[in-house]
Design a protein around this nucleic acid. Structure first.
Length: 151
DNA sequence: GCCAACGTTGGC
DNA sequence: GCCAACGTTGGC
């Protein structure tokens, strides 16, 4: 099993939205590196840290589970959608999604400040300078440590 | 609101 | 293929 961190701005989709919906497709990823991870590496059964960016507080708010393999992102074909991509063809999709299911929301978020201040998180991609990927791998060690703090 | 970091686009 | 211009991300 592998572990991931997925970023979302709560204004567009928050952990409370996922809790309400129970499950959603993680659409709108328009970065090739993130796309490759979704298409080629993320698998059903992997676990996800749900991260809120561009908000207060910033941090990890809970856990979700990947419940599908990758499939084409429907929003790339929808001219009315903000994520429409006119260069994407149905027989040659450019962007992919996976389905994720709500697992739990932490009582208190693990904030970015806490993560930065905790030596146990040294080397985590999230806190590398200039790291902006919205889909990031997380090591088992870092994932478990997040859970330990959350309990 | 600012701006550093990074990705993409397009002229040449 | 280079690189300037531009757009986006996202912390502060």
């Amino acid at each position: 099993m592998k572990y991931w961190l997925l970023k979302s701005e709560p204004k567009s989709y928050s952990i409370d939205d996922l809790k309400r919906d129970k499950q959603t497709l993680w659409d709108g990823v328009r970065n090739y590196q993130a796309r490759n991870l979704i298409r080629d590496t993320i698998e059903k059964g992997d676990l996800v840290l749900f991260y809120h960016s561009n908000t207060e507080p910033i941090g990890v708010f809970g856990i979700a589970e990947v419940v599908s393999d990758a499939y084409p992102d429907p929003t790339q074909f929808d001219p009315k959608d903000h994520h429409f991509d006119k260069t994407a063809k149905r027989d040659n999709p450019r962007w992919y999604v996976v389905d994720v299911k709500f697992k739990e929301k932490f009582k208190h978020p693990i904030t970015l400040a806490e993560i930065k201040n905790d030596p146990a998180f040294t080397g985590m991609p999230l806190i590398q300078k200039g790291q902006r990927l919205s889909v990031q791998p997380v090591s088992k060690k870092h994932f478990d440590h997040i859970l330990n703090i959350a309990k």
